[in-house]
Design a protein around this nucleic acid. Sequence first.
DNA 1: CACACTATTGCAAACCATTGCAGGGTTGTA
DNA 2: TACAACCCTGCAATGGTTTGCAATAGTGTG
Lengths: 387, 387
Amino acid sequence: MIKCVKCGEVDAIAKSGIVRGKQRYYCGKCDYYFTLSSEQPLTINHKRHPATILDIARELQISKSTVSRALHGHSDINEQTRKAVLETARRMEYQPNLLAYGLAKNKSMTVGIIVPEFINSFFPFIIIGAQEVANPAGYHVLICQSNESYPTEVANTNVLLSSRVDGLLVSLTGETPNIDHFKKFERAGIPVVYFNRVCKDTNVSQVIVDDYDGAFKGVVHLIENGCRRIAHIAGPPNLQISQNRLKGYLDALAQHGIEKDDSLIVSYDLNPQQATLCAKQLFDLPTPPDGLFAVNDPAAIAAMLVAKERGIKIPEELAVVGFSNEPTSALIEPGLTTLAQPMGDIGRTAIKMLFDQIESEDHETIEPETRVLKTTLIVRGSSLKHK
Amino acid sequence: MIKCVKCGEVDAIAKSGIVRGKQRYYCGKCDYYFTLSSEQPLTINHKRHPATILDIARELQISKSTVSRALHGHSDINEQTRKAVLETARRMEYQPNLLAYGLAKNKSMTVGIIVPEFINSFFPFIIIGAQEVANPAGYHVLICQSNESYPTEVANTNVLLSSRVDGLLVSLTGETPNIDHFKKFERAGIPVVYFNRVCKDTNVSQVIVDDYDGAFKGVVHLIENGCRRIAHIAGPPNLQISQNRLKGYLDALAQHGIEKDDSLIVSYDLNPQQATLCAKQLFDLPTPPDGLFAVNDPAAIAAMLVAKERGIKIPEELAVVGFSNEPTSALIEPGLTTLAQPMGDIGRTAIKMLFDQIESEDHETIEPETRVLKTTLIVRGSSLKHK
DNA sequence: CACACTATTGCAAACCATTGCAGGGTTGTA
DNA sequence: TACAACCCTGCAATGGTTTGCAATAGTGTG
């Protein structure tokens, strides 16, 4: 029979509905509603939970505030107490719960970084640069891959928002039409620094390389090596890098009296296969190009492979210049002439700017800043027609 | 003058020390100690904090429990209430606070992954495989780079422990002597799955490829292509992959009646520069090798570059076989014959095994399992002496 | 109307660490 | 002796979410 939880009475019990699948009872004697506690006898889950400051406090018979202060080397702590706490913490393998810390301090000690991909070495180098600065500062980095997909990028922003990152580093996808989805961070007071692939919006902090200058140098180099019909595999038009590199290409041509030929400019969405298609399209032209400037190394390499397949000699029949200087560019044959970007510096600079904003009391007052790094032309076999 | 905070009295006030830099007062009348509250008139920091369920609750004049239940589609929620909550949440750009969630549920929805590096494409492909499974399941992946350094690996484990990851994927560094530092996870009930680079400890879950078989196939391939003095650039001895690939190499030789020559086996610590040194050492031998089996592609490629430098013809004078099939192996000239590893599968399999353990009620009862995937010999120019 | 029962909602504890303030004990000094 | 100053420690609220249980309103039935 059912006994009342309060008075122990059996007779005055009446059923009174079912709540969330459980029978509810009513004791008429003490006017008390109740449901029987969970069937399983509440065997406390003895899975050893990680030690908390409370465990340390209990062990030492002190209060958790004291433990907390001891662990953080706060002032106003007796040296012996501090020693004892530290020792006990070590013994109990105490690891602070970053979730609780984050909740209490409203600071997750995490920064997010969204990159389009990390199969090529370009972004990994940047990430490593960023981590070199973040980790010693006690921050860790949550890496998201947008996979060159705008919806994925938006999804990433929500994940990072949920994770309450303290700041965000972003390089946009080739199809990101605008940066509205990053305005959420602004509204939440979370600083954002864009790098490499940025949007036209100038009211943000960003770290870029001098794409115009790099492209200009690369194309001039091709011209100096005797190229007259120089093609360009251009990046997606939404990105500044594409626009600026295209501009550098065009200006270099113009300054050397070479007429622009629209059929020599093909657009590439950063998808590997598409680079191959672009190259084929160029080589199929009635008068194929004798030089090629690609918006990045993977595209240049893809074009080189197509050229090889077709027996087009590099650099004699086609001189090629890429952009970024990924490690593979040195391995391929002939070596790919390219514009080296200081990838580690990009990462380090971007995250330092981010930390400046995080640490400034009032993010609003920080002036958005654009940091421009230089590229270096690395000359290899792919462009040297007359050695 | 100073007024008592309790009784408002002015005369009975006495100074009583300074606490943490602030003057403390004592009211003799009501026997009460106090310090004056912070000078700044407590202007509530109006930085718009992200919306919480409490904000939604206030907006809708309901309790936060109801909001929580509505957001999670729990039963026992009025359809209209649910709609209203969802709508308000959308309007307020509500993003659940994962820190608070994690604290409450004791579940961070995060899994950690420790890799030695991610400059080469090998680990990135595995990570992508893992994310393909993790992200749709609502988990995110905290990527740590041990940078082939044992102390860094240990540091990584502590970070991940602090972050209260729900599970861990690990590929060891070349210098990790034992896996004691992962026992912490076991003690905390956090499942760990090792992949690719594992230790001899058999009492753990792991995903590996059949290294012995791959190495055997690769070396047999070299023998069939006429090599008789086959060198081996071996990995660090602490790793199973090194041991098994070495064993496959030795057995292949033995089965084909080729005497083992210790001078042909050099050890490589996975450091890029060291691979070059190893190659030089081999090529400097009185009787240099006519075939080379390297423990991984980067080492094979490094050796190929040294060979080129020295005018050693590949494959005529030296046939080369690598391991892993990284994208670069197809780009280099001649193409590198190698044993393809199913990298995406490794990542997917490993994280699925991890999830199985995470989701099982009682991790202890899970039998450690070793999943072995197959390698495929990819034949390219680097090994075909007689075409 | 009394009662059983359903559907829905609210209350409060719990998760763990931080921190402002209260208040204890002790030392120094006039 | 009285009081200022110091040193140290504890209490309790806070942060955002989940969830067991209590409680309410409403519905149906005899």
